[in-house]
Design a protein around this nucleic acid. Structure first.
Length: 580
DNA sequence: CGCATTTGACCGGCGC
DNA sequence: GCGCCGGTCAAATGCG
């Protein structure tokens, strides 16, 4: 199939709007900026308020088993008038408020402009009303309308302030976590690294209903690994747009047979979680409905780090999309296709072609239970810097990992017990020795080493080795910089515009568009494309959740922590972009 | 014509 | 040792 066809088919995949005010600041010219521009230019047009406001909401509950963070974004048609709520499904309202799309300066200007216009209209109306009653009535109506607009503006301003606080706090927490991480690394005894530096991390994913993986059916252990967290609750039709992320940690027995880990990935989550108590996963799911196609996109990430000496890193991403593949920011060449026994859907094999000799491969297969879900399993580690978009994903997994590790370290609870039936014993083997040995370091934000899939560049390419990589949220250039002072060899520009709707500059496809639509519709560009391509955007909500979890973990590190309880194994961050 | 994809064959691991 | 199965290879094919 031609790449063109492919791109066309994949177009509107992930449409996620998790767009805190901060992102708008950074976007500058991006879509958000455009939104601001619209607001400014149309000043009066602001009267249209929501202008066909879109909204989406979904909550992913995991029947008393999970601590869930819900991020709901209600967005106006022009990207303005957003309402974002952060709340846990336990009822704790973390943040709530509405915001105008822009914040701070831009927003101030925008609001100010709108107000100025309102006043101007006011004056005009006032002068003209003397003549007749009709004019007077009209003027009254206009005045009412204008006053309403002003109220809206004020309200949006207030909401924007709230959002900014949320974002700032998120960023602050992220910084804190990184500092703690660094501190933790320094505290590590010299001999510990010799043990098992890597952490088995499972950011598994599933957007399908329970048992969505064929393996899950074959292996009864998999069946109990978790309650339904997937799309069965949120994918209520094409009308819902959403991104959700649930994090979970799994136990991993290093002594397990490699073959077991090598389970084929009809769903890596299954591969990762099946049996033996090593199961565990998290869900990253993004659902979206792009106006053009009304597609849903949901993604989940399952990753695991394995001792480099034993096995490659594997990550599984589940994406609800209609395209053949999910665009993850890398370039892939298909080299094979096979029909696995467990799943009649053909499994496609891809090789990373971003850099010659890159060992990373991925398998793409439709989920048997939900054909709309693509299960993409990555294997290996890139030996080249990754595009920003890809690192965004890496940051997501990192955030998730951070959370999971926090939860793990905060108590002796086995996070792998997600399904409710998995033995807690192996969980300790899952945890990094750092973590295991760091019972006195509960405050540690995270293990210094996480396995983050091939999505994080460099860890192994430079001889870092296998799946052990340094956690780096937001895909910080700290990983990229040393390796890629120059991106001349790579298809993406050194600094791809963020929030540009997933635009990847020279890249063949925009990150996270799962299809490579160079020009998603403006409505979409501010959504998933932007979010997924902008680590900050995409991570904001997640990090917020992580932050909460981290706080909880630190408060209750003696096992009473809320996130260490059985109902906190999972976290879900989901955001629902606008929909019709 | 070059490149990507397709597809059947081949290989190796694993279970019986 | 054999068969099954997943993964990879490479020639054939299609497309721009």
């Amino acid at each position: 199939m031609s790449s063109k066809k492919k791109r066309a088919a994949q177009k509107p995949q992930i449409d996620l709007s998790l767009e805190p005010a901060e992102t708008r600041e950074e976007d500058g010219d991006g879509n958000c900026g455009a939104a601001d521009g619209d607001r400014k230019a149309s000043d009066g047009a602001a009267a249209e308020k929501d202008g066909g406001g879109k909204q989406g909401e979904a909550s992913k509950e995991v029947a008393g088993e999970e601590k869930v963070l819900e991020v709901v974004v209600v967005q106006g048609g022009d990207g303005s008038n957003e309402e974002i709520r952060y709340r846990t499904l336990q009822g704790e309202m973390m943040e709530e408020g509405k915001q105008p799309a822009a914040n701070d300066d831009d927003d101030g200007e925008s609001v100010g402009a709108g107000r100025a216009c309102v006043e101007e209209k006011h004056m005009v109306d006032a002068t003209g009303e003397d003549d007749n009653g009709a004019n007077r009535r009209r003027t009254t109506m206009v005045q009412d309308e204008l006053s309403g607009m002003q109220e809206d503006l004020e309200r949006m301003k207030e909401e924007n302030r709230l959002l900014r606080r949320v974002v700032d706090r998120t960023m602050h927490d992220y910084g804190e976590l990184q500092m703690k991480l660094a501190a933790y690394k320094q505290q590590l005894p010299a001999d510990e690294p010799n043990k098992e530096p890597e952490v088995f991390l499972s950011l598994g994913a599933t957007a399908a209903a329970d048992g969505g993986f064929p393996e899950a059916k074959r292996k009864e252990q998999a069946a109990r690994r978790r309650p339904s967290v997937g799309s069965d609750e949120t994918d209520d039709g094409k009308e819902d747009l959403g991104l959700s992320l649930s994090l979970g940690a799994s136990s991993y027995d290093e002594d397990q047979k490699p073959a077991a880990r090598h389970d084929d990935a009809d769903g890596a989550a299954a591969a990762i979680t099946d049996g033996k108590g090593r199961g565990g996963y998290a869900l990253l799911e993004s659902s979206s409905m792009g106006p053009p196609a009304g597609e849903l996109a949901s993604a989940g990430i399952a990753s695991q780090s394995v001792n480099p000496a034993n096995r490659k890193t594997r990550v599984s991403v589940r994406v609800r999309c209609q395209g053949q593949t999910m665009n993850d920011g890398c370039q892939w060449r298909k080299y094979g296709q096979k029909v696995a026994k467990a799943n009649p859907c053909p499994r496609a094999y891809y090789r990373c072609t971003v850099a010659p000799g890159c060992p990373v491969r991925k398998q793409v297969q439709r989920c048997l239970e939900d054909m709309s879900i693509l299960v993409t399993t990555y294997e290996g580690t890139h030996n080249h810097p990754l595009p920003v978009g890809a690192t965004a994903m890496a940051s997501t997994t990192s955030s998730a990992a951070t959370f999971m590790l926090l939860s793990s370290t905060s108590s002796s609870y086995s996070v792998s017990d997600a399904g409710g039936g998995v033995s807690t014993a192996p969980s300790s083997s899952y945890l990094s020795p750092y973590l295991l040995n760091s019972s006195s370091h509960h405050s540690s934000a995270a293990s210094p080493f996480l396995s983050s899939p091939p999505l994080i560049p460099g860890a192994t390419g430079g001889g870092g080795g296998g799946g052990t990589q340094h956690l780096n949220q937001f895909g910080n250039s700290s990983l990229l910089a040393p390796q890629a002072p120059s991106h001349s060899k790579h298809p993406w520009p050194p600094s791809p515009p963020l929030g540009g709707g997933g635009g990847l500059g020279g890249g063949k496809r925009p990150f996270w568009s799962t299809g490579g639509d160079e020009n998603p519709t403006p409505e979409l560009t501010g959504n998933v494309g932007a979010v997924m391509s902008d680590p900050n955007k995409f991570s904001a909500g997640i990090n917020n959740f992580v932050r909460k979890e981290a706080q909880a973990a630190m408060v209750g590190k003696d096992g009473e922590s809320s996130c260490s309880k059985s109902d906190s194994k999972w976290g879900v961050v989901e955001s629902l972009p606008p929909h019709e």
